[in-house]
Simulated assay, not measured.
Amino acid sequence: MKSPLDGWYEKAGVRTDPRRVIGDELDAGRTLFPEKLIPYLDHPLVQDLEPGRRFGLVARHLYQYMQFTMHFETSVVNRAAARIADGTSGLDLPSSVRLDAYKIYCDEAYHALYSLDVVEQVSDATGIETPDYDFTPFLGRLDGIGADVMPGEPVLVQLLQVVVFETLVTSILKDIPKDPLVVGTIREVVRDHAEDEGRHHAYFAAFFKELWHGMSPALRERAARCLPELVSRSLTPDLVPVRASLTAAGLGEAAVGEVLADCYATDQLRLGVRASARHTFQLFESAGVLDVPGARDAFMAAGLL
């Protein structure tokens, strides 16, 4: 079969893309992130802030997105890609599949590199400090699902994590490159990322079907109960940096709480998760995940179907 990573040496961003460098576009009034994709920016309490403080919110939202990307690529995706590549995944895989996993490993490391590079460039250009970002609690929650639902299967949980995340289609990767109001360098970096991720999506969709059909029926039932929570936790936003950013913008504790409650309501978050995970759900459907006893009920209980 033709691999989605065929032509990697000629097409991959790490092989062909130049370093993206921010010029003078900020002076022309461009923004750093599409404001429609920042849930709290139109909240009345935030709209009342002076322009400089609102710009700081946009900058810190970009920082949060890029820092999350940097950590997720190296701590979650590459953790699993390395297992596939080096033969410690527990699966008997052809060498071509393992080599492709190493290509993805290189891609993701480069995505992490230019994500941090963008943060440093923007911080230097704007003077807006980069807040500390602790990825450990998010990773702990993600890994905790396995400990709770699939004890004794840490490697399988890591493989399921990467399948879930690499088959999601978020609005950020689609919308930022098309937004003419966003600084061109940021649009180009996200476009570079999206092009690589399209190939990764195809790779992990195929990988999941092999992984799924290689499980025993009992293990499939356990995995099917684990997947809804993996999807939800992968897409539920980390509100700690949001809270810190709103506070830095000058909002008091009560106002910050009101903004978070209004903009991150449970029903709204579930709708966002469903939209971003629709291709992942289609993959699960085609592989037969929802045919496993109790699986559809588990997805329904999680509010995903």
Score class of each variant (00 low, 15 high):
Ala12Arg: 08
Glu188Thr: 10
Ala248Trp: 02
Pro34Gln: 09
Leu57Glu: 02
Phe207Cys: 09
Asp238Ser: 10
Cys263Arg: 14
Ala295Met: 06
Val169Phe: 07
Glu221Asp: 14
Leu139Thr: 04
Phe299Glu: 02
Thr280Gly: 08
Phe135Gln: 00
Leu160Cys: 14
Pro217Val: 04
Glu25Ser: 12
Val231Gly: 03
Val163Ile: 15
Leu246Gly: 01
Leu37Thr: 04
Met70Phe: 15
Arg233Tyr: 06
Phe281Ile: 03
Phe33Arg: 01
Ile145Thr: 13
Val14His: 09
Leu246Glu: 00
Tyr9Arg: 15
Asp24Ala: 14
Leu211Pro: 06
Leu239Gln: 08
Glu195Met: 15
Ala261His: 15
Leu235Gln: 11
Ala223Trp: 01
Leu239Gly: 10
Ala254His: 12
Leu142Val: 09
Leu269Ile: 14
Val21Ile: 08
Gly87Met: 09
Cys226Asp: 00
Lys103Ile: 02
Tyr105Asp: 05
Phe208Gly: 06
Leu91Ile: 11
Asp297Glu: 11
Leu246Cys: 05
Cys106Arg: 12
Leu283Ile: 12
Asp179Leu: 05
Leu116Ile: 07
Pro228Ser: 12
Ala223Gln: 02
Gly87Asn: 08
Arg20Gly: 01
Arg141Gly: 01
Ala81Asn: 07
Lys2Arg: 14
Ala301Pro: 00
Leu113Asn: 03
Gln161Ser: 10
Val231Tyr: 03
Leu32Met: 11
Tyr264Asn: 14
Cys106Tyr: 08
Arg199Gln: 08
Val58Phe: 00
Ser115Arg: 01
Ala59Pro: 01
Ala125Asn: 03
Glu50Gln: 13
Pro94Thr: 10
Ala244Asn: 10
Lys209Glu: 04
Thr280Asn: 11
Val97Leu: 13
Arg54Gln: 05
Gly87Pro: 08
Val256Gly: 01
Gly56Thr: 07
Val157Leu: 10
Pro39His: 10
Met70Arg: 15
Lys11Tyr: 07
Arg243Tyr: 04
Asp117Ile: 10
Pro18Glu: 09
Pro131Ala: 13
Ser286Phe: 02
Pro151Cys: 07
Val190Glu: 00
Pro18Tyr: 03
Phe33His: 05
Met66Gln: 12
Glu10Ser: 15
Ile172Lys: 00
Gly288Arg: 03
Val259Asn: 09
Asp6Pro: 08
Thr69Tyr: 00
Glu108Gly: 14
Asp107Tyr: 08
Phe281Leu: 11
Ile186Arg: 00
Thr185Ile: 01
Asp262Pro: 12
Gln121Asn: 06
Tyr102Gly: 07
Asp196Glu: 06
Tyr203His: 12
Gly303His: 05
Val182Thr: 13
Glu188Tyr: 02
Ala147Thr: 13
Tyr102Asn: 03
Val190Thr: 11
